[in-house]
Amino acid sequence: MANILKRFGDIMSANINALLDKAEDPEKMIDQYLREIESDLGKVKAETAAVMAAETKAKRELDECAAEAEKMQKYAEKALLAGNESDARQFLEKKADLTKKQESLQKSYEAAAANAAQMKEMHDKLVKDMENLQSKRDAIKTKVAVAKTQEKLNKIGSSVAGAGDAMAAFDRMEAKADKMLDEANALSELNKQEGGIDDLTKKYDSAASTSDVDDELAALKAKMGL
């Protein structure tokens, strides 16, 4: 019994928190403790039932003794009414013996009742502790489930973050390509502008040459009288 109470004391104290902190799988750890407690609780129930049975027996023996003493009292009265004082004395002597026995049985019953009350109180406390542990187990299982879900989300988040880095790299490459294309287009535009000036100059140069020829032709016609 002492070992059972010590086990309950250890489990319900802060020691269980230290044990759970060290456990690789807190969910399995607390399930193991609950199985052990259920086994111990079964032993406590059996012992509590035995002590309560002893109390019931002691009470029954006390009541029977008291009833027998009361019966002797009534027989003594009847004997006196019948004029049999000797018989009445015997009944009273028996009553005296039963009264002494009753005192002893009373003490035994009080002790048995105290033991039963103590065991019942202990049993009820252990049952309540068991319920508290079951609640803790449910809370721990919920936390473990949330933690596992968070781990999955973290892995997915890492993958998404990796994809984001790749997208950023492609964006940088695209920006670089756009820059190169813009520079090439600008250079091409500049080249076109330079070619345009040359062509325009040639146009006027050509026009000037044609005008000179016309002037010379006119002068030649005048000289020839044409």
Rank of each mutant, 00 (worst) to 15 (best):
S188P: 00
V160G: 02
I156M: 07
A53N: 09
K107Q: 14
S13F: 04
T56N: 06
F170R: 05
E110C: 03
N154T: 13
N15W: 04
E55D: 07
D129N: 14
L153R: 12
L190C: 03
E121P: 00
K152N: 10
I11Y: 04
A139T: 09
K152A: 12
A58N: 02
I30T: 05
E55F: 02
V44F: 01
K100V: 06
L153A: 11
G162W: 06
D198R: 12
A169K: 14
N132I: 06
D199Q: 09
M224C: 01
M224T: 01
V51K: 15
A175M: 09
R89E: 09
M52L: 14
V144W: 10
D87N: 12
G196S: 09
G83W: 07
Q150W: 14
A79Q: 02
L133E: 09
D138L: 07
K101F: 00
E64H: 03
A46N: 11
K45S: 09
A114N: 08
E64D: 09
A82V: 01
N154L: 05
A168K: 10
A168G: 05
L217P: 00
K202V: 02
R137A: 14
D212E: 10
T56H: 05
A23N: 06
A14G: 06
S158H: 11
R7L: 08
K141R: 15
N185F: 08
A113H: 08
A222W: 03
A147W: 04
A2F: 09
I11D: 10
G157Y: 01
N132D: 15
L105M: 04
A111N: 10
D21M: 11
K202G: 04
Q90I: 08
R89L: 09
E121M: 12
K59L: 02
E189H: 07
A23I: 07
M122Q: 13
D212N: 11
E93D: 13
A53G: 14
Y75G: 08
P26K: 00
L181A: 14
S209P: 01
L200W: 09
E110H: 03
E93K: 05
E183I: 14
D31K: 15
E131A: 15
L126T: 05
S135Y: 09
K107S: 15
E47M: 13
L20H: 05
A53R: 13
L81D: 11
L80E: 13
A114I: 03
E64W: 00
L41D: 04
G195L: 10
F91D: 08
D25Y: 06
N3S: 11
A208I: 14
A96R: 06
